[in-house]
Computed example of a mutant assay.
Amino acid sequence: MTDLFEASGIHPPDAPLADRLRPRTLEEVVGQDHLLGAGGPIRRMVEAGRLGSMILWGPPGTGKTTIARLLAQAAGYQFQQISAVFSGVADLKKAFEAARMRRAAGQSTLLFVDEIHRFNRAQQDGFLPFVEEGIVTLVGATTENPSFELNGALLSRSQVYVLKRLDDAALDQLLIRAEAQEGGTLPLTPEARQALAALADGDGRYLLTMAEVLFDLTSTEPLDVQALAGILQKRAPAYDKSREEHYNLISALHKSVRGSDPDAALYWLARMLNGGEDPLYLARRIVRMAVEDIGEADPLSLLVANAAKDTYDFLGSPEGEL
């Protein structure tokens, strides 16, 4: 049930900064111009006034929920949201029945399913007849690769749109809006402001959460990078050893080596190690890179990579990591 604040589009004064700055139109969404800008596929749907079912795939804090809500608003659909984390079969039945009643009254329904990949295969199959009949327009949000986590039948009835991590320009735009909202500038040096954006790692919600902490400071002197790190501490890197982020990072490491970019390669290597990846797995992948990506350009690379793998395999941690 929506309250008066939600119905009016006005957030209560004690709401988090990220909620108070939530875009009210699709034009205010930052960082996703490839989908929402002129000629973008989602923009064309809105201009045609007819939405198709879609899966929004992207990392946290890139605007998946906001885009779904604004799509319903722009196209004149009734927005209904459920979460795969908290919802079961009974909740789905209620949602579909409500959508069926709206359709009989001439009202279309956009059903937004957050974390849709958490529904099992049988539950995902339950969406199919209602999507096919047009009772709901399904918009699912996921941080996992839909090809791995969603049924082929459901994917065949939906368009998959990839949301990008917010770049520096988009993050800076969010900080400018936050400063306008709070009526003051962030107490940061230019270098610390860049460090703040780097710490967010493309996550707009996290950036605004950190900014809200900084606005509450009483310090009048701008914080440098070291002082900023002392206040915000260190963010746990987004990484898992068996799911989407695992494959993203090992792919980035491969591409960095293939592109002869040692700084980037060291960054991705350190990020995986810091995230808890098995060093022996990385050593094996580096041997593979020495064969496939370097090859005869530097024959010694294979000897060095094999020696590193054998050394770690023999000594283990922590000696083998030195």
Rank of each mutant, 00 (worst) to 15 (best):
H254Q: 12
L196F: 08
I55G: 14
R103D: 00
D172N: 10
R44G: 03
A265H: 02
A141S: 14
M45H: 08
A68P: 02
L269G: 06
S147G: 13
R50V: 14
L154M: 14
V85F: 10
Q181M: 12
L214E: 03
A308Y: 12
S156Q: 03
L282V: 09
Y312E: 04
I135P: 06
A307D: 14
G126C: 15
R121N: 11
V213H: 11
G39N: 08
R20N: 04
F148Q: 09
Q107W: 11
Q81I: 01
S301F: 13
N248G: 03
G49Q: 13
L92H: 07
Q226E: 12
A211E: 01
F5R: 10
S53A: 07
F5P: 11
A192D: 02
V30E: 08
R20A: 07
A195D: 09
D278M: 08
R165I: 01
S317T: 15
G140Q: 09
A18E: 08
E132T: 14
S53P: 07
A197W: 02
Q80C: 01
L36D: 00
Y239P: 04
D310V: 02
M289K: 04
E212D: 11
I231M: 06
S242N: 12
G320A: 15
T142L: 09
S83I: 11
Q32V: 02
A264I: 02
S260T: 09
H11C: 00
A236P: 00
P237G: 10
L223P: 03
T66D: 06
Q78I: 01
V160G: 06
A200G: 07
L249H: 10
V29R: 04
Q173C: 08
R288M: 13
L166F: 01
I294K: 08
Q123P: 10
L188K: 01
K234D: 12
T209E: 14
L110S: 06
A15I: 04
D3Q: 14
Q173W: 04
A90I: 13
D172H: 03
V257T: 09
L166V: 00
Q159D: 02
N151D: 13
I231P: 00
D125N: 15
L4R: 14
D125P: 12
T209L: 13
D224H: 03
R69Y: 07
E179I: 07
K64P: 04
A95R: 07
